[in-house]
Nucleic acid binder design. Structure first.
Length: 434
DNA sequence: TCTGGGGTCCTAGGACCC
DNA sequence: TCTGGGGTCCTAGGACCC
């Protein structure tokens, strides 16, 4: 089966450019939470040598010297663009797996390889017309090959943004020749070192190695990669990923925090936000894990990393129960004398809220209908009035630990008209949370 | 001075059971 | 001297990804 990976080019930077077309040809950088790190760059910014993940304070001078436009990230807006891109792609393929905010795998049963390139070009054009976002397409027999092809489509201008890996052995091997095994999707530093130790250096080496041998040195993960590189699919296109396994809410502080009350507030705020995410997805959690971190970059300071779990019995999505449990875990691991940099809350053991039925033995205590109505009312109010309009007092009001994100292009965007409309597509729903 | 946030899958080892 | 064996479930930690 012909498969494809459609991946947006410089996604967050491209979103900012659609919001403000005058930014065409201007170098753009988008920063992470707290304006900490570079998480997206336009082609012009990449050309200036600004690295992905670079701390902003390290590249600030370069940015200023070259007139780079800097943006704080605005994930609510990028999420809207993502939905539009995925909607446009859905019209183009029978099977689609939304893999991340800016990429999707597509499946085309019965499509001859000879027609792949023309198809890819049509898709690219359709997405650009519908959303303003440029995408690249990598196409081939397997996901791993599509991933490699996509990277090459982006770097090779002659490709026109669409590249197909040949189906015949000779053509595929030619494509893999000279590709470092470390550049294969799923091969990180650890796996690459193990492969190198057995003289598997290039993607072609990996494709040609005996799968049983690869399995011994690199496990089932490595074996699947080797097979995929040979054009044998091990990773299907999964249209329905199923319910999520965990919910994570964590933030670095805007400045070091040592005050216990301030820390407790941050933990409570993250726990409450986690509970909100559970309710959005109709899930309940059986465990909450609280994490505290000092600044790992400050080698001159005492370090402390701690995780502590607390059961939620019965499993719940109630912000009060989850905050209380998180508070207990927090009290057990909090230590005086450290400058904390980050706090987080992880919710695990997720199951459908509907399964926890009142009165069924073995499934915990019956749901309290009052409690359920209260949470629904809070969610409805916050949806209408903005996030945290109604909140638990324990989550704090000043939130002094919050960092800065002053450089958002649309800091208080509430007017859907400000988002350019897709020419052909349905009018997108606009939801701005922050 | 200033270094993100949120996920998934696999494996090894222990608990427990028959 | 001289350990049973095999199965399942759960969890912690590693590795990798966007």
């Amino acid at each position: 089966m012909l498969r494809a990976l459609a991946d947006c080019n410089n996604f967050y930077a491209s979103c900012e450019r659609v919001l403000d077309p005058s930014l065409r040809d201007v170098p753009i950088v988008v920063l992470s939470n707290n304006d900490g790190c570079v998480i997206a760059r336009s082609a012009e910014a990449k050309a200036l040598g600004i690295a992905m993940g670079a701390p902003y304070f390290e590249v600030r001078r370069t940015c200023e010297a070259h007139g780079v436009r800097i943006f704080s990230s605005n994930f609510a807006v990028y999420g809207e663009f993502s939905e539009r891109v995925m909607a446009a792609l859905t019209e183009q393929a029978r099977d689609i797996e939304v893999y991340s905010v800016d990429e999707a795998f597509l499946g085309f049963p019965d499509m001859p390889a000879a027609e792949a390139r023309a198809l890819g070009l049509r898709i690219k054009e359709a997405v650009l017309r519908a959303t303003g976002i440029p995408v690249s397409l990598g196409m081939g027999a397997t996901k791993v090959l599509c991933k490699l092809a996509n990277e090459r489509a982006k770097s090779d201008r002659a490709s026109g943004g669409v590249l197909v890996v040949p189906y015949d052995d000779a053509g595929r091997e030619e494509f893999l020749r000279g590709v470092d095994s470390e550049d294969v999707w799923g091969v990180g530093p650890g796996l690459a070192a193990r492969l190198r130790a057995h003289r598997i250096v290039s993607a072609l080496d990996l494709a040609q190695a005996d799968p049983a041998f690869v399995r011994r040195v690199a496990g089932v993960v490595g074996e699947r990669l080797a097979l995929e590189l040979r054009g044998i699919s091990c990773h299907d296109i999964v249209e329905d990923a199923g319910p999520r396994q965990s919910v994570m809410v964590s933030r670095s502080f805007g400045r070091p925090v040592s005050d216990a009350a301030e820390l407790a507030e941050a933990v409570a705020a993250h726990a409450a936000r986690g509970a909100e995410k559970l309710r959005e997805d109709g899930l309940v959690a059986a465990t909450v894990v609280v994490m505290l971190r000092t600044n790992r970059h400050r080698l001159d300071q005492e370090q402390y990393f701690a995780d502590e779990a607390e059961p939620l019995d019965p499993p719940t999505d109630d912000a009060r129960a989850i905050c209380a449990a998180a508070g207990r875990a927090f009290a057990r691991i909090r230590r005086d004398g450290y400058l904390y940099k980050k706090a987080g809350v992880l919710l695990q053991g997720l199951s459908s809220a509907a399964v926890v039925q009142p009165g069924l033995p073995g499934l915990g205590a019956p749901i309290d209908p009052q409690r359920d109505r209260l949470m629904k009312a809070v969610d409805a109010l916050n949806h209408r009035l903005g996030r945290d309009a109604v909140r638990l007092a324990s989550t704090g009001f000043e939130r002094k630990w919050k960092g800065k994100s002053d450089l958002q292009s649309t800091p208080s965007l509430t007017d859907p008209e400000r988002l350019p409309k897709a020419k052909d597509g349905p009018k997108p729903r606009i939801r701005f949370h922050e």
